[in-house]
Computed example of a mutant assay.
Amino acid sequence: MHQGAVPQILEKTEEDFFSKVISILRVATDICNDRIEEIPCLTCPHKLEGSMFVMVKLNPSLLEDINDDMEFCLKRAKEESVMVLPGRVLGMKNWLRITFAVEHAALEDGLGRI
């Protein structure tokens, strides 16, 4: 797509589309906030407000056989088929990046597996 087309696309897009997207993301944000609070080894320092992902602090001392964010993410992928980005790749050891711009049922399932 040519960037020059963006203004025209935005002008022709119905306002209802944007309202629906915001509503979907708001529900996903609420799901993510609620589920993260239920996971003892994770802490979210700031309540989610406007994004499609969240950085959460991992406390590996509350887990058996997991020493850091990389091990946590590898085990979640292997054992639970859940992909979470280790903060280490962003220069943030023992943090996790969780994307919540997914179908609500998949988000609930993925956070439940974590």
Results as ranks from 00 to 15, higher is better:
residue 1 M to W: 07
residue 3 Q to K: 08
residue 3 Q to Y: 08
residue 4 G to M: 10
residue 4 G to I: 05
residue 5 A to V: 13
residue 6 V to M: 06
residue 6 V to A: 15
residue 8 Q to V: 04
residue 8 Q to G: 12
residue 9 I to M: 07
residue 9 I to D: 00
residue 10 L to F: 07
residue 10 L to V: 11
residue 10 L to E: 09
residue 11 E to K: 07
residue 13 T to E: 02
residue 14 E to P: 00
residue 14 E to D: 15
residue 14 E to N: 15
residue 16 D to P: 01
residue 17 F to C: 07
residue 17 F to K: 11
residue 18 F to I: 00
residue 18 F to M: 01
residue 19 S to L: 06
residue 20 K to E: 14
residue 20 K to V: 14
residue 22 I to K: 12
residue 22 I to E: 14
residue 24 I to A: 01
residue 24 I to H: 01
residue 25 L to G: 00
residue 26 R to L: 11
residue 27 V to D: 05
residue 28 A to V: 04
residue 28 A to L: 07
residue 29 T to Q: 09
residue 29 T to H: 04
residue 31 I to L: 00
residue 32 C to Y: 09
residue 32 C to N: 02
residue 33 N to M: 04
residue 34 D to I: 00
residue 35 R to E: 15
residue 35 R to H: 09
residue 35 R to M: 09
residue 36 I to L: 05
residue 38 E to N: 10
residue 38 E to M: 13
residue 39 I to M: 06
residue 41 C to H: 14
residue 43 T to E: 10
residue 44 C to H: 06
residue 45 P to F: 14
residue 45 P to V: 07
residue 45 P to S: 07
residue 45 P to Q: 12
residue 45 P to R: 11
residue 48 L to F: 08
residue 49 E to D: 12
residue 50 G to N: 12
residue 51 S to C: 12
residue 52 M to T: 13
residue 53 F to Y: 09
residue 57 K to I: 12
residue 58 L to M: 05
residue 59 N to K: 12
residue 60 P to T: 02
residue 60 P to D: 04
residue 62 L to P: 01
residue 64 E to G: 03
residue 64 E to H: 13
residue 64 E to W: 08
residue 65 D to V: 05
residue 65 D to R: 15
residue 65 D to L: 10
residue 67 N to F: 03
residue 67 N to T: 03
residue 68 D to P: 10
residue 68 D to A: 01
residue 68 D to Q: 09
residue 69 D to G: 06
residue 70 M to K: 12
residue 70 M to G: 04
residue 71 E to L: 08
residue 71 E to G: 02
residue 72 F to M: 14
residue 72 F to S: 07
residue 74 L to I: 06
residue 75 K to R: 13
residue 76 R to N: 03
residue 79 E to R: 04
residue 81 S to K: 12
residue 82 V to H: 00
residue 84 V to C: 03
residue 85 L to T: 10
residue 85 L to W: 07
residue 86 P to E: 06
residue 86 P to M: 09
residue 87 G to N: 05
residue 88 R to M: 10
residue 89 V to H: 06
residue 91 G to F: 01
residue 92 M to D: 01
residue 92 M to G: 00
residue 94 N to E: 07
residue 94 N to I: 00
residue 95 W to G: 04
residue 95 W to A: 11
residue 98 I to D: 02
residue 99 T to R: 11
residue 99 T to G: 14
residue 99 T to M: 01
residue 99 T to L: 07
residue 99 T to N: 14
residue 100 F to E: 01
residue 100 F to S: 01
residue 100 F to R: 00
residue 100 F to H: 14
residue 101 A to F: 07
residue 105 A to E: 15
residue 106 A to G: 00
residue 107 L to G: 11
residue 107 L to S: 03
residue 108 E to P: 05
residue 108 E to D: 13
residue 110 G to C: 10
residue 111 L to A: 03
residue 112 G to H: 06
residue 113 R to S: 15
residue 113 R to L: 04
residue 114 I to K: 07
